[in-house]
Design a protein around this nucleic acid. Structure first.
Lengths: 99, 99
DNA sequence: ATTTTATATGAGCGAGAGTTCATATGTCAA
DNA sequence: TTGACATATGAACTCTCGCTCATATAAAAT
């Protein structure tokens, strides 16, 4: 059997990897990697509905992956911490270097 | 819009991260990290049904995450490449270091 | 050969997750 | 205030995915 503490760590690791396990979310992260963007901008660039983007952004916000600031009517999103950037980059390079 | 090639890369990255996005699979990977194990051994140690483990092992085998050898009636599984080990370890440490 | 043990696999079920659709909230402009 | 624009959100629908259950395959033991 697995000890309680290790199981908790593995479960948290799963949660972390789940962030990157959806194409829409990964596109968002990839886009925000280059800098901050407003919601409609993201939706347009990713050719995805505003609602779908907004739902995913809420998710990412709740997980502290992104942070926001307001600019008039707009809400501007950007990546919050460098952990996320690092893991994304490592996964991305691993996934692509074997082509 | 995202260029075709980049989209393909992002999609492959998603597939990579999905490997680690299930607790059963992560438990298996964690266990195999310590060395090779037979199917029933894995099922017992993870307190999970043989069938569930076998299904996940098939998935991991198809994705070239694990490799097998036979020992009589038993099939012994172990991690195939060090990429997987590295990504798992990075995710695991990122997920756990912030407690 | 038959039985027992180890593993694999297909079908079906149920839970979770992402999308759409409709609508609410909020902010600026006229 | 009213209208237009930007974002958020709840509900319903759908689809994916991991599990169970039953069964198939395979290899050793008797």
């Amino acid at each position: 059997m697995i000890e309680r503490e290790k199981l908790k760590n593995l479960a948290e690791t799963v949660q972390l990897f789940k962030i990157f396990s959806d194409l829409t979310r990964l596109k968002i992260i990839d886009l925000l990697y280059t800098g901050e963007h407003a919601v409609q901008e993201i939706a347009d660039k990713l050719n995805t509905s505003q609602s779908a983007i907004s739902h995913q952004l809420k998710l990412l916000r709740d997980l502290n992956v992104v942070r926001t600031r307001k600019n008039g009517k707009q809400v501007i999103y950007c990546l919050r911490d460098s952990h996320i950037k690092e893991i994304f980059l490592i996964g991305y390079s691993h996934a692509t270097e074997c082509d």
